[in-house]
């Protein structure tokens, strides 16, 4: 226990350990129930904060903030005003409905956001669980949650990466999805996608888990039809 301090534990949760140290910490934690409990507390704290503030990023941006940029843009020579705001308004409507959906999830489930805790494990719930179950990467125009890669993990079982209010990787476990990693997502900033730190870290998790190559469209469809077994 003494060889793993709190900083190492949270670095693991934050995805800041390299492969060698990550394995080392995980090995020690596996043999130390007290440490494992502490790790779970940190995982859950991170998921809770991420989920809590994710709701803010999903709200439509207040008019006065939008107006500030709109006005500024019209005084710049290369301004092209109108069409974009219509798209944006539509995004706002989608965002509003998503917030509503999450709100209902909170009232009935008692657990806010797309990720809940079950027996100390992060699990997908609500719209995220549904997207993981049913959504195909080849057909998801306009979806609030985007599925990235579907792949088989080492030792067997399906995993899928996702991006939305929360980004990360989830793996099939029984009838549900265990969330392996949860980071604040990029949506709804998707029209302007810089390589984000979330992207790089989701890819690192995929790399660490994946066996062989990710499924192509046909493979993904077949796996979905088979209930991800």
């Amino acid at each position: 226990m003494s060889q793993i301090d709190e900083a190492m534990l949270i670095a693991l949760v934050d995805g800041e350990l390299d492969e060698v140290n990550r394995r080392r910490v995980e090995r020690v934690v596996a043999d130390d129930p007290a440490l494992a409990e502490r790790l779970e507390m940190h995982r859950s704290l991170r998921a809770r904060l991420t989920g809590h503030y994710a709701l803010v990023a999903e709200e439509p941006v207040p008019d006065r903030l939008r107006a500030l940029l709109e006005e500024s843009e019209t005084v710049v020579p290369i301004a092209r005003p109108a069409p974009r705001w219509r798209n944006w308004a539509m995004g706002g409507a989608i965002a509003a409905s998503l917030v509503l959906g999450l709100g209902i999830g909170r009232m009935s489930g008692g657990d806010a956001g797309p990720i809940g805790m079950r027996n100390g494990v992060m699990v997908a719930q609500g719209p995220l669980a549904k997207a993981l179950d049913t959504q195909l990467a080849s057909a998801q125009q306009g979806a609030a949650i985007r599925i990235g890669l579907s792949f088989q993990r080492k030792g067997g079982g399906w995993c899928r990466s996702f991006d939305g209010a929360v980004a990360g990787v989830a793996c099939r476990h029984g009838e549900g999805w265990q969330v392996q990693q949860a980071l604040p997502g990029m949506w709804p900033g998707t029209e302007y996608r810089q390589a984000s730190s979330a992207d790089a870290r989701v890819m690192a998790t995929v790399d660490a888990l994946i066996e062989g190559a990710p499924a192509d469209a046909a493979g993904e469809k077949a796996a979905q039809a088979g209930g991800w077994r």
Partner: peptide, 14 residues
């Protein structure tokens, strides 16, 4: 434009 780039990251800034 600079403004549009800003608008896209505004939800995260909020």
């Amino acid at each position: 434009s600079f403004e549009r780039d800003l608008l896209a990251i505004l939800p995260r800034l909020r």
